[in-house]
Simulated assay, not measured.
Amino acid sequence: MRFKQKIAKLSLIDSKDHSFRITTQINVDHLMNSIDYAGMLNLPLLIEEKTGYKIVCGYRRIEACRRLNWAEVEVRILESDTKKLECITYAIMDNSLQRHLNLIEQSRSINLLYPFIKDFSILGKELSIMGLPGNPSIIKKIKELCHLSGSVQRGILSNTFSLTMALELGRLERGAGDGFAKLFETLKLSLNKQREILTLVKEISLREDISMLKVIENDMLQKILTNENMDRNQKIRKIRIYLKQRRFPVITAAEKEFENHLKKLKLGSGTKLIPPDNFEGTTYILKLFFKNLIELKDRQASIDALIKNSSLRKILDRSS
Rank of each mutant, 00 (worst) to 15 (best):
R108N: 11
I285E: 11
V28E: 01
I197P: 00
I294S: 14
F20K: 00
M130S: 02
K140F: 06
N309E: 02
Y284K: 03
A181K: 12
E228D: 07
T24P: 07
V56S: 03
D17F: 01
P115A: 09
M212T: 05
L312F: 06
V28R: 05
L46W: 02
S162Q: 04
N227I: 02
I236C: 09
G39D: 00
R60N: 13
E105S: 14
I77N: 00
G179S: 06
L148D: 00
E49T: 15
L316V: 13
N27K: 14
E105A: 14
Q222A: 06
L78M: 07
N159C: 11
R67S: 10
S96N: 09
E144T: 12
I315A: 07
M32K: 15
I117V: 15
V73D: 01
L45Y: 02
L262Y: 14
I210V: 14
S137E: 15
I88R: 02
E257Y: 13
R195P: 01
L41M: 12
Q194P: 03
D178S: 12
S319L: 12
K214M: 13
G175M: 12
E208S: 13
L187T: 06
L316I: 15
I216M: 10
R108M: 08
L225V: 05
K264T: 03
F290Q: 04
S302W: 01
M230C: 10
D317I: 12
L101H: 09
Q25K: 15
R66T: 04
V28P: 00
L68N: 09
D29V: 14
E259K: 15
A166Y: 08
E196P: 00
F3V: 08
K272T: 13
N292G: 06
K202W: 05
S11H: 04
R67T: 01
S19W: 01
L123Q: 07
I236K: 02
C87L: 10
L296M: 14
I13S: 08
I315P: 01
E203V: 00
F116S: 12
F180W: 04
G58E: 03
K188A: 13
I47H: 00
L206P: 01
E185G: 14
S11I: 11
P115Q: 05
G170S: 07
M220L: 13
L97R: 15
E196W: 03
E79A: 09
L286V: 09
N33C: 06
H30Y: 09
G134W: 04
N102M: 07
N69A: 09
R299V: 09
I216G: 04
K125E: 12
K266A: 14
M220V: 15
I303M: 05
F161K: 12
R61P: 00
R232N: 12
S311Y: 08
N102K: 12
H147V: 06
G270Y: 05
A8I: 13
K264S: 09
L243H: 01
S109N: 10
L132M: 05
R246I: 08
N135F: 03
I26Q: 15
K9W: 03
M130T: 00
C57L: 02
L293V: 05
L163G: 04
L68V: 04
Q245T: 10
E86L: 00
S190Q: 12
H261A: 08
A181C: 03
S107F: 11
W70C: 06
